[in-house]
Design a protein around this nucleic acid. Structure first.
Lengths: 344, 344
DNA sequence: GTTTAGCACTCAAAAAGTTCGAGTGCTAAA
DNA sequence: TTTAGCACTCGAACTTTTTGAGTGCTAAAC
């Protein structure tokens, strides 16, 4: 079972995978000898394939059909066989660059466009997880009075992300007080990440001096409310693309998939997980609960601003996906986004 | 052909439509006599149905199948037959109210939740078009300096909607100037709708006094840039729901539908159109280019803040949809949203 | 003059039966 | 070790048969 894979074995496995990726049909020994110039007869290939099946790298849906790579085979393929093909054509590069630029300077807009871009260039689904607010760096806070008891709090991060929050107050606060509060807070919180800001606010609220300054207390309370949410945003684009994949042709499967992605929480977990390591990562079918049932895979890469990893983006497609094509797309897009997000 | 529809004809047409709505199968004369207590034999019903077919209200997919209502029949049904059933159960009412409340005070959040709500309670797709910014009333504008040449403009409307916009300037403007500009503009624009604001700004930019006050000129230019976008936002939720509809079981159709809704522009046209009349409106299949090809219908209602119509929401489902159930849902939701959006 | 029972007829969908061919595993020769 | 040859398998695709819901028409019943 665990006999080491021979060079020839690798070549044939690669051939099977690549044929399967393009045709989505079980591939037989003949097909391989024809499409890949191996100096071998179908019979020989058959023997090798039989060995590969023994090793758990191939399966056949039934006796008289060709063979299909298992998840284990894909893993092997991406880890050790597939390599060095990782270059984008200049044309693709340009297209990606152009479209990212076009989106303008608003970070949210840009990330959404990136997701759309990933989806169209890969022809699978594009996904981008926006930076968790907590990692952003505080820049400024404003309070705008809307009516007697409603205040709009605006929180600006250094990368230009803006978060608004509507607050209700029991007592009426004059606009001057609000301005003073904002000034005070802006001085105190300059340069901290929002996570740190939060800690600081909580610490401050418990400190001595607050006792004597009720306005300060209010200010702290307001800002703490403002900063409280931290739901990461996910941009998922091109869902219709997966309808084109033959393996999801049947209605029941399709429904399952759409339902699964409607709840974004599972996806969030997965993306969070992939943020722990830097660079391109690949999750194949059975390796994740979300993807498992759906026969899908995920190629991700982290992106950063400056030196801190802030988010993840990637492509979701069928396990039978053109990894060689997708990986460089994801990689390049992540790097480009990192560059564009760099403060200044 | 244009013989007036008899009372009995109406009753039978209604029966056909209702059976077809629940089963999605062509309905035959027998089925009707059994499910609806008409004191008539199948043979009689057959004769009547034959008449209805003559009038263009029914068709049969083939000779030996039952009959299916045409779009014309649905129109008739909705206009004159279906009536007075328009009540929601207390339970549904409560659920709708509860969930709308939960969404909190942020308008965008609330509208999105409303869309989700429409989709789950109707089990079709929910759609909400957010108020066109232009109809909002100006409340306040702020400029926040992010770095030497980047300014964040914040535009707050009286209903709490906030629009952010990142601006680039050639020359550096000190924060004090920005504050002065904002004050000046806030005074000038108080209480105007954004559409009016825009006109005013353009007029102002051409007036005499600008010549002598370059800062004022800059202020006007900046604010004009801020207000320039007016893309109506659409929240479309529950797309997966239509996968459950048997008429879309086949993959090709499904793909078409998803593709069609990916471009939101067609939908936008349609919603815009339905904003011209107040109250509940129904678009049936062939009556709109978007819905036509897909065999779908749209039930909408406008909603308002105060006395002005500001947006549209509704449900998109198959032409064969439970109008009697959906109409009150849409109607009630629209009224509720109107109430919740009321300023103060 | 309606309404209804009766009956021959139609036609899609389901079931059963055929054919076809890509693919396999095994054996024996190269 | 590789390959040619061959019998065998089995799903996909195509045909044929059966079934039954539904129709339209005619003639009798109300």
């Amino acid at each position: 079972m665990e006999e080491q894979l021979s060079e020839r074995g690798k070549r044939i496995l690669e051939a099977v995978i690549e044929d399967y990726i393009t045709t989505a049909e079980p591939v037989g020994s003949r097909t391989i000898t024809r499409s890949h110039a191996l100096a071998l007869s179908p019979a020989t290939v058959r023997n090798v394939m039989s060995d590969l099946e023994e090793m758990g790298l191939l399966t056949s849906p039934h006796t008289s059909a060709g063979r299909i790579p298992t998840d284990k085979a894909y893993r092997l393929y991406v880890n050790s066989i597939l390599e060095a093909k990782q270059n984008l054509t200049a044309g693709k590069r340009d297209e990606i660059r152009r479209r990212c630029r076009m989106a303008g300077r608003d970070p949210a807009e840009m990330l959404k466009e990136a997701s759309r871009l990933l989806s169209t260039t890969s022809s699978y689904m594009g996904v981008v997880m926006a930076p968790r607010m907590a990692a952003n760096v505080f820049h400024q806070m404003e309070f705008v009075k809307l009516s007697s008891h409603r205040i709009l709090a605006i929180l600006v991060s250094q990368n230009g992300t803006v978060q608004n929050r509507l607050l209700e107050t029991e007592e009426e606060l004059p606009q001057e007080d609000l301005v003073r509060m904002a000034n005070y807070l802006n001085g105190m919180l300059q340069g901290l990440t929002l996570a740190q800001v939060r800690e600081r606010l909580i610490a401050e609220m418990q400190s001595e001096k607050v006792r004597y300054d009720s306005m300060m207390a209010k200010a702290l309370a307001l800002s703490e409310q403002t900063i409280r949410t931290d739901s990461a945003e996910i941009f998922l684009e091109g869902q219709a693309n997966i309808l084109d994949q033959p393996e999801f042709a049947d209605t029941a499967k399709m429904r399952e998939i759409f339902r699964a992605f409607e709840k974004k929480s599972l996806l969030l977990d997965l993306l969070d997980r992939s943020m722990q390591a830097e660079g391109v990562q690949i999750f194949i079918g059975s390796e994740s609960p979300l993807l498992k049932m759906e026969g899908m895979s995920l190629v991700t890469s982290t992106y950063l601003t400056g030196k801190d990893t802030v988010g993840v983006l990637g492509v979701i497609g069928p396990t039978r996906m053109g990894y060689g094509r997708v990986i460089p797309i994801v990689d390049y897009t992540a790097k480009l986004i990192s560059r564009l997000l760099e403060t200044e």
